[in-house]
Nucleic acid binder design. Sequence first.
DNA 1: TCATGTGAAAACGTTCACAGCA
DNA 2: TGCTGTGAACGTTTTCACATGA
Lengths: 228, 228
Amino acid sequence: MVRLPVYQRILADQVRNRTSTLSSEQLASLAGVNAAKVRKDLSLLGSFGTRGTGYDPAFLLAQIDRALGVDKNWAIAVVGIGNLGRALTNSQGFASRGFHVTALFDVDPMVIGEEIKGLRVRHMNEIASLRSHERPAIGVITTPGWAAQEVANLLVQVGVTSILNFAPRVLTVPAHVHLRYVDLSIELQVLGFYRAWRDEPSSDGAEESEPPPPLIRSVGLSAPTDIV
Amino acid sequence: MVRLPVYQRILADQVRNRTSTLSSEQLASLAGVNAAKVRKDLSLLGSFGTRGTGYDPAFLLAQIDRALGVDKNWAIAVVGIGNLGRALTNSQGFASRGFHVTALFDVDPMVIGEEIKGLRVRHMNEIASLRSHERPAIGVITTPGWAAQEVANLLVQVGVTSILNFAPRVLTVPAHVHLRYVDLSIELQVLGFYRAWRDEPSSDGAEESEPPPPLIRSVGLSAPTDIV
DNA sequence: TCATGTGAAAACGTTCACAGCA
DNA sequence: TGCTGTGAACGTTTTCACATGA
């Protein structure tokens, strides 16, 4: 299931390229997984391929879009208009995935009033007075750590029940709120870890004699980040 | 293993707060997992807790740091100095996790020459002429999609064997290069998906009668992003 | 007494291998 | 013939439950 968005993007590419059919083998190699996985994944959505031929990219894409609820078009608010906040707001990817940014907040007077993508950055305190059509389903926190909890509180107050937190803070929210953490530097760390383990096969004399542990196969995003 | 960086950050927090002991239960609740998982995870590193009491945050943190190779201090190059590239370069998190940015590249004449964190942004073509002490172990690609493959080629040419790709492109690299994709909007999508499934319990009449699938437990970052 | 550390069981995800269909 | 779809086998991760030790 976690791979559906990957297939989605690849298929969109293929549709643009006018590819008429795509085998599980091809799709797998583009996605960097094996063919069995692709077939298993897709079979969970239904039987959308043709035996002996493959999949029709456009049709398959439509099925995945439906499964992923791209039609939902969630409203999201971004709080913290630093580099990452801007990157996310300007991102092309959101629209094509069923999200649109409806409100931007910060506390910095230098930033408040600025227009990004036609939206004026407002002071964080105005979160509480959001009008219903701007009221986000999802709040994205890209503030420094010290502000994150207060932002979360404000978002919860105004009825947000899903929060994506990029700030380097563990947040406390009511049980009904769905909270995810993203830490970009963990990705790097994993890469480094992986490298250390692969490229330097126990060249270190002082290391314990333990053989390489099973180690990292996929990384769950589950912790705060410093990138703001 | 993928959770160690999470524990790491939480422990660092606790050390700052002068917490003297921490039970697996407490650590678990901070990390958003269950206590059994925490104990299993930590037991793989060794027996660092005290029965009946818990763990000493500082000591445990030191063990995790060691296991994660924070001492390695990898050199990384960031290619593509847009919002995300800046966010990553300015990130506090890298240094504390054993990374330091040694080189910045772009193609935009407006950006080339700019100084960020004491590093001058250079033209992408200069990747090839990197001096050995700047030569990165890890390359981070935060360019638009169209530039990503060329950047990857240059990085590989200069001997980079680990690449973290934020660009919305599937890249081709030699087999010995370790490549990871990051897609920030997938996190949002997952959140939306999860919400759709939780908050709207089959209110849709036309939906298949299938009960909510097991669904997403952790998200592997494994696809390109649009955020650049 | 209380929380760790750990075998054993259960759940889960991946891979295999092939039947079934175009 | 060629590729999908899928049971069955396999391996890994998570959970359970409790013996162990401070």
